[in-house]
Amino acid sequence: MNIFTRLQTIDRRVLYLLIALVITVPLLVRPGRHPRVKFNEVRNAYKTISNVPKDKLVIISITWGPGTTAENGPQTEVMMRHLFQRGVKFAVVSWDQAGNELSYEIGKKLEKEMGKKYGVDWVHLGYRVYYPQVVFRGMAQNFQKVMEYDKFHTPLSKLPAVSGVKTSKDIGAVIEITPSGTLELWIAYFNGPYRIPLIYCPTAVMAAEAYPYIDSGQINGMLNGVIGAAQYEALIGMQNAKTDAAATSWALSAAHIFIILLIVVGNLGYLATKRAARGGNGGGR
């Protein structure tokens, strides 16, 4: 029994412990260095937000909850940060119950840090149920009637950031931050018919499937998981900030190399076992 065959019998819990150790080091060091490479779709997202007129509202759509905070949280934070930097007003609407609390907390944290004011620079529309077919279309026709109030039941007419928003013509862009297949619905019912720019911030699992929409121009920019958020952070002048996204990108580097090594060792073991079995059965054939 050679080393590769013996490695086949390793307990899965040992592997779990090893992956935990592998990612611990970058998280302890927390390198502030951001990814040097920036994908085109991230640059395009940056350009799109940079070109939104200041008199228009940006909608940040939250479809994520606690399960994907590690990916969608940094995306939400970096998009809000850029909008605050530019002074473009935005409204956050959560289609996820718990995402409602989480996105509000991110907004509050940034509001304090960047000296902004709730209701004037941004609003949170709270949790809404997800019936996109009619809600998106209704929102485009009469934003005030469908959205009506914010998270604290304040009528939109009393919130300067959104009081002037009547129809889709007053909306400058939509940022969809999501771990599920909601992209198509925004394109079909909102961004497509009304020609409103769309920035897509999916979890990495969803990203590969979005490239046809980038190619056709139906998505104006994309942040691919937490790496996309880290790349975007670098674009808005946070190259050396010790953020969660930057630390995660290095921890991911270590984790990916470890997984590739596991695949290689696993396959070598598989080959060794196969060869040994063939040797045993075939008698040196």
Binding site: I19, A20, I23, T24, L27, G67, T68, T69, A70, E71, G73, T203, A204, V205, A207, A208, N224, G225, V226, I227, D244, A247, T248, A251, L252, A255, H256, I259
Partner: peptide, 16 residues
Amino acid sequence: GATVMGRMTLFIGRFN
């Protein structure tokens, strides 16, 4: 490849 990255990110989030 992207799925591995996504799932690892969630785990890294907890360890972070």
